[in-house]
Amino acid sequence: MKNKMNVTASHWVLIFALLFAAFACFLLVEPYMNSIVMAFILSLLMFPIHEWIENKLPNHKNIVALLSCIVLTFIIVMPLLLVFSAIMQQGAVFSQNLYQWVTGGGIQEVIAHPWVKTALKFINNYLPFDAINAQNIAQKAAEFATSLGSNLVATSAKILGDATNFLMNFFLMLFVLFFLLRDHDKIIAAIRHILPFSRSQEDRLLNEIEKVSKSAVMGSFLTAIAQGAAGGFGMWMAGFPGLFWGTMMGFASFIPVVGTALIWIPATAYLLISGDTTWGLFLAAWSIAVVGSIDNVLRPLLMQGSAGMNTLMIFFSLLGGIHLFGLIGLIYGPLIFAITMVLFNMYEEEFKDFLDGQDNS
Score class of each variant (00 low, 15 high):
residue 188 I to M: 10
residue 150 S to Y: 02
residue 50 H to P: 12
residue 182 R to H: 01
residue 351 F to T: 07
residue 355 L to S: 02
residue 85 S to L: 00
residue 168 M to R: 13
residue 276 D to V: 06
residue 321 G to Y: 05
residue 225 I to W: 06
residue 246 G to Q: 03
residue 37 V to N: 00
residue 184 H to Q: 12
residue 58 P to I: 14
residue 23 F to Q: 07
residue 330 L to G: 09
residue 78 M to T: 14
residue 126 Y to V: 11
residue 265 I to P: 03
residue 216 A to C: 00
residue 128 P to G: 09
residue 336 I to A: 12
residue 12 W to V: 15
residue 140 K to Y: 07
residue 54 E to P: 06
residue 163 A to S: 10
residue 77 V to K: 00
residue 5 M to L: 13
residue 243 L to F: 09
residue 267 A to N: 04
residue 23 F to L: 09
residue 192 R to P: 06
residue 223 T to R: 05
residue 248 M to R: 03
residue 29 V to M: 13
residue 315 F to V: 10
residue 252 A to L: 09
residue 13 V to N: 14
residue 324 L to K: 12
residue 242 G to R: 11
residue 263 I to M: 10
residue 60 H to Y: 12
residue 99 Y to C: 00
residue 172 L to G: 08
residue 299 R to H: 03
residue 100 Q to M: 11
residue 137 I to H: 05
residue 174 L to D: 02
residue 53 I to C: 10
residue 281 L to A: 13
residue 182 R to L: 07
residue 307 A to V: 10
residue 274 S to L: 03
residue 156 S to E: 06
residue 264 W to H: 06
residue 133 N to S: 11
residue 137 I to A: 09
residue 50 H to V: 07
residue 102 V to Q: 08
residue 283 L to S: 07
residue 171 F to T: 04
residue 49 I to T: 13
residue 286 W to D: 04
residue 57 L to R: 13
residue 293 S to G: 01
residue 97 N to T: 12
residue 316 F to S: 03
residue 338 A to D: 08
residue 228 G to V: 08
residue 47 F to K: 08
residue 326 G to K: 00
residue 215 S to G: 09
residue 306 S to N: 14
residue 6 N to K: 11
residue 126 Y to K: 14
residue 9 A to N: 11
residue 78 M to E: 10
residue 78 M to R: 06
residue 302 L to K: 03
residue 131 A to F: 12
residue 262 L to Y: 06
residue 292 G to Y: 06
residue 134 A to N: 04
residue 309 M to Y: 03
residue 320 G to C: 08
residue 143 E to S: 09
residue 28 L to W: 14
residue 361 S to H: 00
residue 217 V to W: 01
residue 142 A to E: 15
residue 353 D to E: 10
residue 43 S to G: 15
residue 113 H to G: 13
residue 1 M to I: 14
residue 120 L to A: 03
residue 274 S to Q: 00
residue 361 S to P: 01
residue 225 I to H: 07
residue 112 A to W: 01
residue 124 N to W: 02
residue 197 F to T: 12
residue 295 D to H: 05
residue 77 V to A: 04
residue 146 T to C: 10
residue 53 I to P: 03
residue 320 G to D: 10
residue 179 F to A: 15
residue 236 W to A: 15
residue 353 D to V: 11
residue 336 I to G: 06
residue 325 F to W: 11
residue 106 G to D: 12
residue 76 I to N: 09
residue 271 L to V: 09
residue 174 L to P: 04
residue 290 V to Q: 02
residue 331 I to R: 04
residue 165 N to M: 05
residue 334 P to T: 09
residue 168 M to T: 05
residue 220 S to H: 12
residue 226 A to I: 01
residue 278 T to G: 01
residue 326 G to L: 00
residue 117 K to H: 09
residue 66 L to S: 14
residue 3 N to V: 12
residue 141 A to S: 15
residue 224 A to N: 04
residue 278 T to S: 14
residue 128 P to Q: 07
residue 233 F to V: 14
residue 126 Y to S: 12
residue 181 L to G: 01
residue 209 I to L: 05
residue 146 T to S: 13
residue 345 N to Y: 02
residue 209 I to T: 04
residue 204 R to F: 08
residue 290 V to S: 02
residue 123 I to R: 02
residue 14 L to Y: 08
residue 221 F to M: 07
residue 147 S to A: 04
residue 338 A to S: 15
residue 158 K to H: 07
residue 297 V to M: 12
residue 82 L to M: 02
residue 338 A to C: 14
residue 81 L to N: 01
residue 299 R to N: 06
residue 92 A to D: 05
